[in-house]
Amino acid sequence: MVFNLTLNKIKELIIDLNVDEIKETVQAELDAGTDPKQILQVLTEGMDEVGRLYERKEYFLTDLILAGETMKDAMTVLNPYLKADEQGNKGKIICATVKGDNHDIGKNILITMLISAGYEIIDLGTNCPANKIIKAIKKTKAKVIALSCLLTMTIEEIKNIVDALKSAGLRDKVKIIVGGAPLNMEIAKKMGTDDYANDAIDGVRHINILMEG
């Protein structure tokens, strides 16, 4: 739901990938006394539309990333105005690229989309060993782990993480979703995970379902 013309402009700036104007427009809206939650809502609506355009192949990877950059810029202005419980109130997600793999593009796009969807993210970065994930689960009580794996030679690392979670008695406490170039649902299941997502947009959709389960 869009409430006024300026708010609509913020949504359009996200959809139009206008990274140059977003900060000042958000700041102007805040200065005009608009509720920060309303601004967050239109930003999220804009990102949702970008996701739809990407799925229809009208937008491409660089567009998706630029939308994410635009969103990030908006959030640097908006975040100080949001109460702590309004940021990431849908739950905690652990995101990581598996050990031996330093690719972070897919993971970072997913993170931007998840933040926009209202989740709090614990980003464990790339080349992430199983013990770091276990430590993070114990500390944060996150319910979902999203693993990125871009290299064929690190596919087995997914299984190592699943096995480590079993050994730590945590496997039934978390859902694991994976994504990345060499993967598909069949491999995801073979490695002992719960789900697979084809891209970041698909990932958010699947994580929404996993969080409800």
Binding site: L17, V19, L61, T62, D63, I65
Partner: peptide, 15 residues
Amino acid sequence: TWEGFGLENFSRLLA
């Protein structure tokens, strides 16, 4: 080209 900038900076440059 994109790798010289990283994908985030490259995407910004595309604008």
